[in-house]
């Protein structure tokens, strides 16, 4: 596997890395997400109950995670309307409660639903509706059932729009540096754009996905974990690291032995965690295991910087990190 990758890199021109990320990761990624959300919507139409829907829900996550943190072009706004998090004001829960208590058109009409707060759409809504025991016991002829069907129909519409909208971004990446490409003026810019996303993803996972539940010294905050009601905290964190490295491997033109080793460390740390929802981190041992995972993700970030960024002389932004 490693050997094949090296040969491929040697055999292709400079843009290969960007093209490979586009062709082998992002393009199939958005297509898979479109399929998975369509399947989810169909499943909800067939049987909207929480238990019946969970496999399709998890499958939608499996499709979303590889592209979740690669926010380029249409995935930038989509990341907000598909997986808004963290929601520190509880806006999503409040909006959902309000919708369920009302008879608003948004309850059954996906187009009207697309106007509600981003925090109440997509995965955050399903995490509540399918994962909160106070809500998830709904029957097939209930307002909650209708809302679940609306949420999933909205997700399928978003998935389809993303697959469609992604074409333009894929073309822009593929033609980076060519005349008329206003998105990526050089090949190097396309590389940099993808590389920046890798770093942001790892940073977000370490600081926010894992950092928020870790809380303050002596005070873990398990319910501040990401979509913990439906068991997403550990799978999402691990998938984010896996996706980051997958993209780094496709992007770099050299083997990344250190990055791969660092990812293995992340996997080991993740495997040691007993409760994927992080709801046990009041327990010191569980907390320690989560902290170790966080450290391993940070270490992975440092190594990607050293192994992928440094050889290209990539440095943080000139304007974006220095406001005026």
């Amino acid at each position: 596997m490693r050997l094949a990758l090296v040969l491929a890199l040697l055999a292709t021109p400079a843009l290969a890395g960007v093209e490979e990320v586009t062709q082998q990761h992002l393009r199939p990624g958005v297509a898979a997400f479109a399929e998975a959300t369509e399947a989810l919507a169909q499943a909800a139409r067939a049987d909207c109950t929480a238990e019946a829907l969970r496999p399709a829900y998890d499958a939608a996550w499996t499709a979303w995670s590889p592209i979740a943190d690669l926010r380029l072009g249409p995935t930038e706004p989509a990341a907000l309307t598909i997986a808004y998090w963290p929601d520190q004001r509880g806006a999503g829960a409040k909006a959902l409660r309000g919708l369920l208590a009302s008879d608003a058109p948004a309850l059954r009409d996906p187009a009207a639903f697309a106007e509600v707060s981003a925090a109440a759409r997509g995965f955050p809504a399903l995490d509540r509706l399918l994962g909160d025991p106070e809500l998830s016991g709904y029957g097939t002829n209930s307002p909650t059932c209708t809302l679940v069907q609306t949420v999933t129909a909205d997700m399928a519409a978003q998935g389809a729009a993303l697959a469609e909208g992604w074409q333009a971004e894929a073309e822009a990446l593929a033609s980076a540096g060519e005349a008329g490409n206003a998105r990526y003026l050089t090949e190097d810019e396309a590389f940099r754009a993808l590389y920046t996303q890798i770093l942001s993803a790892l940073e977000f996972t370490a600081d926010t996905r894992l950092g928020r539940p870790l809380g303050e010294p002596g005070r873990p905050r398990p319910t501040r974990a990401e979509f913990w009601r439906t068991g997403r905290p550990l799978p999402n964190a691990l998938a984010s690291a896996e996706a980051a490295v997958a993209v780094a491997q496709l992007l770099a033109e050299i083997p990344l032995p250190l990055t791969e080793a660092a990812l293995d460390q992340v996997r080991h740390a993740a495997a040691a965690i007993d409760d994927p929802t992080f709801q046990n981190i009041e327990d010191p041992t569980a907390r320690l295991k989560l902290e170790i995972l966080q450290q391993r993700v940070r270490a992975l970030l440092d190594i990607v910087e050293a192994e992928v960024g440094a050889p290209r002389g990539l440095q943080p932004g000139f304007n974006s990190r220095d406001g005026d």
């Binding site: 929601d87 520190q88 004001r89 509880g90 829960a93 409040k94 409660r97 208590a101 106070e134 319910t223 501040r224």
Partner: peptide, 10 residues
């Protein structure tokens, strides 16, 4: 209608 514990405030 108040809801229960919130993720931010247990």
């Amino acid at each position: 209608s108040y809801g229960g514990a919130t993720d931010e405030n247990q």
